[in-house]
Amino acid sequence: MRTVQAVAWKEIQIYFSNPMAYIVALIFLAVTGFFFVVDLTDPFPEASLSNFFFGATIVLILLAPALTMRLLAEEQKLGTIELLLTSPVRDWEVIVGKYLSSLVFLLAMIGLTFYYPLLLWVFGRPDPGPIYSGYLGLVLYSAAALSIGILTSTLTSNQIIAFVVASGILLLMYFATLGTGGGEGIWSTLVTEIGMRSHFDDFERGVIDTKHIVYFLSVTAFFLFLSIRALESRRWR
């Protein structure tokens, strides 16, 4: 556990001293701020954050991989992976440590958006339920998105490839539901259930369904598991 902490802490320090991470945070705030304001310019503005949540999930398709792409790809490029893998550190400790660091930074980014609901409370009377559940959904969604980024970063020493592939996977998973064309049958159901959007809707509406929580946690666990396996495979590849 101490090793996980050490790995995570080192990466967190690098995040907070790295211009890239601040650029990501800046874009995140700018885009989500825009989506937040769109609601308010309506002739009959609604004191809700649903547009913000929608915008946040969309923009994270690009920004989550941007946060994670460095984490393992750079170690492989610089050769520091050799040091890491010859230290008495288990592979899962490396992956989990790195993953937690990206999660902490993303949570800090989400934390910066708390002034949106604050503004709603100052100027209106929003329904708190969908705001709480929406934030819960956003955190779960972010956790899953970052785990996908960790996997692609483990698989390559090229950060650009890690970024593009992770964004691609996220994009596919996000919009998978559209691909069913509203059809019926086992395949449509399957694709809809894999798609992230269909699991996020309820959170936006203020519904906390265990099914969706389990979905996001499973996706996260699945991709972290694959990442650990991918790192292990470096030893015999």
Binding site: I14, S17, G79, I81, E82, L83, P88
Partner: peptide
């Protein structure tokens, strides 16, 4: 790994 100190050919340093 606990018993080995290793200096690879390309010195692995976190430059930042």
């Amino acid at each position: 790994r606990r018993r080995v100190g290793y200096l690879p050919e390309t010195v692995p340093l976190y430059t930042e």
